[in-house]
Amino acid sequence: MDLLQTIGGYLFTDIRMAAPVLLAGLGLLLMNWSGLLNIGAEGIMLIAALAAVAGSHFFGSVWMGLLLAMLAGAVFGLLFAVLTVTLRANQTVVGAALNILGLSLSTTLNRVFFGIETTVTKVDAYKVLEIPLLSKIPVIGRAFFAQMPIVYIAFILVPVIHYFLFKTKPGLNLRSVGENPRVADTLGINVYRTQYLATIVGSMIIAAGGAFLSTGLLNFFAEDMVAGRGYIALAAVIFGKYRPTGIMVAAMIFMAGNVVSNVLQVAGVGIPYTFLTMIPYVLTIIALTIFASRAVAPASLGKPYKRG
């Protein structure tokens, strides 16, 4: 019974940790299916994490924080779209620029808003929302049904985005843009508008993931707090073969590494903790080297499209 309890606890942590990576992955997925390769998720999450804390601090509500974070994400998305879609700049370079911009801007604004103090400003964060009855299921009840609302949203988005992509006409149109924009264009789809929309909406979903880091997992902003999750999300999309369910599984696996590292640290094995914190990242690299070549990316991913 005790063991089961422990496993339930691990599962709880895994799901909670996976949620931000899952959100970022789903946001990236929408962009990828419109043919845009954005490595800037890390930067978007960082600025969103700060915006969430700022919103929560100044308006006194974590939901206002989320709103502000998604707004910040939308602005970053718009910037990415203008540069890569309209001006056809190199997508990888712009994505890298977003990461640098997100890191430096969030650091600077954090110091402007909250000053350089040793005590961090704590803000309103999400409360656990227990689903009556279901959360009482032994072992898994708490893991699945006693999470923060944004965790539920992240996991509900998986079937929603899957349905959108593969069962609706707008989803088909979006995928056709990512596969072959010229074909989409000749069939009357506005390629540029599709890419703008996918980028802005996608960035807002990524931003929600960032917001959860600073107002869910923690309740303050720390510099560079995303700590590579944006890149892990990027890997999760590839490992998940550009399918929402795949991304979900990938996020859970990668973050399970995080859980294992925590457990080992607490258990006090003789390995220095710095090595243990490497586990999720090492896991990501291993998974990518094994599976990356088998993933089927949208055919025009990363290639700028020019009409006519």
Binding site: K169, P170, L172, N173, L187, G188, I189
Partner: peptide, 10 residues
């Protein structure tokens, strides 16, 4: 792809 006839979503 790009079909505008019938149901707009499904």
């Amino acid at each position: 792809i790009g079909d505008k006839e019938g149901n707009a979503i499904k």
